[in-house]
Amino acid sequence: MNPPALQIRTGSRSRPWLRSELLLLGVLIVESLVFARTGTHFATVGNALEILRLSVEIGLLAVVMTPVILTGGIDLSVGSLLGLCAVCFGKLWRDGGLAWPVAALATLGIGGMAGGLNAVLITRLRLPPLIVTLGSLSLFRGLAEAITRGVDNFTGFPPSFLMWGQGYFGGVIPAQAPLGIAVMIGVGLLVHATSLGRSLRAIGFSPEGARYAGVPVGRQITVVYLLSGVAAALAALVYVARVGQAKADAGTGYELLAITAVVLGGTSIFGGTGSVFGTVLGVATLAVLRNGLQLSDQPGELAGILTGVFLLTVLAGEMAFKKYSARRVASGMLQTSTASSKPASS
């Protein structure tokens, strides 16, 4: 892209993502208020927890997609990888005769390996992530179908495993919620409170610049895609535990939901700016939309249509903000030049 413009953008405020999050928070509040009026039993604690429970899988994928997009990359393969991991877990547990915790660990390893494959193609061969993961999207789904010949469906998992997707702690808190929240906090700290997180953003702004600044770009990118693979595996385990079955079609289309949530949350698709908190808000906005519309007896298609409308509205609003502050910056150059050096240098 064009670095000068970007610098002005970051320079206008020390945390430029904040405004898109506020915008999104507004959307979330407005839709909640509307659904509280129109939906049956929408504004209840039980429903809030249920929304949380149902968004853990997408949430896991989206939260870990955030650092990927921060580096200016993308991972289209996560939905397919979820399917592959679900099937591998079932295969290892049923046909491999492994105890489920062992099979689960092995599945996380498989997810990591698959993420590693993406990483190798992207860093070693210097291929664009969009293309690499477009290919592995087909490849992973294809392998899942090949392993099961399409027809195998793994079921009958032990209750001690299913508990993690269907159980409630104290009869109230969904069992997978703490897991999702832990990952969210972990990735949030990684992205916002470590030097790794800062270097990811530097890579997103300018890979060459980051390299000259001494950032081991290849290694950092590898870490990000590895994480994405492991997260897909983790989401697969939660999915299998929640639905009670593992089949090759699990997670179809989840990549688009995850990317939508990330972008809605204010992360720039070109990399460089964004936050995990914004992504969480994005996931929540979409989940509340689906849930609220259904509780208001509205057709599901409306959720899709409104997702598109929200996406465009939030983006356009953000752009309006940006242009407004850029104009302000232009009239007060002095202030900018002192602030802009801060985020770029670290």
């Binding site: 249920e50 929640r242 079955q245 079609d249 509780l295 599901g300």
Partner: peptide, 12 residues
């Protein structure tokens, strides 16, 4: 999609 069906039932 079996997972989406579950989601709809849960919301009902």
């Amino acid at each position: 999609d079996p997972a989406k069906q579950n989601e709809i039932v849960e919301t009902w």
